[in-house]
Structure formats: structure tokens, C-alpha cells
């Protein structure tokens, strides 16, 4: 019997629904977070965005602006809103295990 699939993990989120402990994040948890946010199965396009904003966060300590993201990740504004409906900046940050983005744009 596989224990992994049946093990129940409890993960703590902050008040805004982002991971309270960034080090809890891994790729498997990203899918669980996506399910929790109602995003569904993560596709390669979701991962383009997730990997890009994680890289930017590592470099700059904040998620990139949507403008920067769409220019540099190759995912257009329209697609971004389809991938992460109802607030792409926050939703993508949540799935990527990052705190709420600070920027206005």
C-alpha cells in the first residue's frame, strides 16, 4: 500500500491565503494549491508562469508586475487571465507558494 497518497498533510496559510511558510512549497503542493484555488490541473503554460515568477521572486524579493511577466514569460495578458481567472497576480503567487505581490501594476 502506498502511504504517500493517503497521508494527510496540514499546510498553514496566511490571512490572505498564501503559504505561511514558503519552504513548505514543492511541485506537488503547487497542484494542491491550484485545486484549492479552483484553478484545476496545472498545464505547461501554468508552469511557465509559476517558474518565471518564482525566479523573479528569488532575484527581487517580490513577484513581477503583470507587464513584466507578459513581456518576459511569453504568456499574453489574455492567456494569463484565462490560466489564473479571478485575479492572476494573486492566484499565480499563491500557487507558486509566494506571498501577496506588493506592486500596483
Amino acid at each position: 500500500m502506498s502511504t504517500e497518497a493517503n497521508t494527510e498533510k496540514t499546510i498553514v496559510l496566511d490571512q490572505d491565503g498564501h503559504l505561511a511558510n514558503l519552504e513548505d512549497w514543492n511541485e506537488e503542493l503547487a497542484q494542491d494549491l491550484a485545486d484549492h484555488e479552483g484553478i484545476g490541473a496545472l498545464t505547461d503554460r501554468h508552469w511557465e508562469v509559476i517558474n518565471y515568477i518564482r525566479e523573479e521572486f528569488e532575484k527581487n524579493g517580490d513577484a513581477p508586475s503583470i507587464r513584466k511577466l507578459t513581456k518576459e514569460s511569453g504568456v499574453s495578458t489574455k492567456e494569463l487571465y484565462q490560466l489564473f481567472p479571478k485575479g492572476p497576480a494573486k492566484k499565480a503567487a499563491k500557487v507558486a507558494g509566494l506571498p501577496k505581490p506588493k506592486g500596483c501594476i
Binding site: N6, T7, E8, I11, V12, D14, H36
Partner: peptide, 11 residues
Amino acid sequence: MTKFVTHDQKN
């Protein structure tokens, strides 16, 4: 299965 709880719920 992953269960998500907020700080408040945890406390």
C-alpha cells in the same frame, strides 16, 4: 490529500 488551514484556524 492536503488540508489547508489559516493561522487563525490553526490557533
